[in-house]
C-alpha cells in the first residue's frame, strides 16, 4: 500500500453524520453560553417569560433581605 492508498483508507475513520452533528451542537452551545453574560440571559428570560422572570427576581430579593439579618444574628451568636 502506498501513501495515497493509506490516506484514502483513513477516511473510513471519519465520524458519522450523527456523531458530527452531536459534536457541533455541544461545541456551539458551549461557545454561545460562554459569550452570553448573566445580565443578557436575564434579559432574554424577561423577554420570553416576563412573569416567571419577575417572580424569580422578587424571590431572590426577598431571600437576600431575609437571610442577611439572620446571617448577622447567627454570626453574632456564634462568636
Amino acid at each position: 500500500m502506498n501513501d495515497t492508498e493509506i490516506m484514502s483508507l483513513w477516511s473510513a475513520l471519519e465520524p458519522t453524520s450523527r456523531r458530527r452533528a452531536r459534536i457541533e451542537t455541544r461545541v456551539s452551545e458551549w461557545l454561545e453560553a460562554s459569550e452570553t453574560s448573566i445580565a443578557a440571559e436575564w434579559l432574554g428570560l424577561l423577554k420570553v417569560e416576563p412573569l416567571r422572570a419577575l417572580a424569580y427576581a422578587s424571590l431572590g430579593a426577598v431571600v437576600l433581605l431575609l437571610l442577611t439579618p439572620v446571617g448577622w444574628i447567627a454570626g453574632l451568636l456564634l462568636t
Binding site: 477516511s11 475513520l13 471519519e14 465520524p15 456523531r19 452531536r22 459534536i23 457541533e24 455541544r26 461545541v27
Partner: peptide, 28 residues
C-alpha cells in the same frame, strides 16, 4: 477542521466515543 481532528485522534484512541470527547474539547 473538525473531521480532520476526529480522524487524527481516532487513530490514537480506543473508541469513537473517546475520539468524540477529545475532538469536542480540542475544538473548544
Amino acid at each position: 477542521h473538525v473531521q480532520r481532528v476526529f480522524r487524527t485522534v481516532r487513530g490514537m484512541l480506543r473508541s469513537d466515543a473517546e475520539a468524540e470527547d477529545v475532538t469536542q474539547d480540542a475544538m473548544l
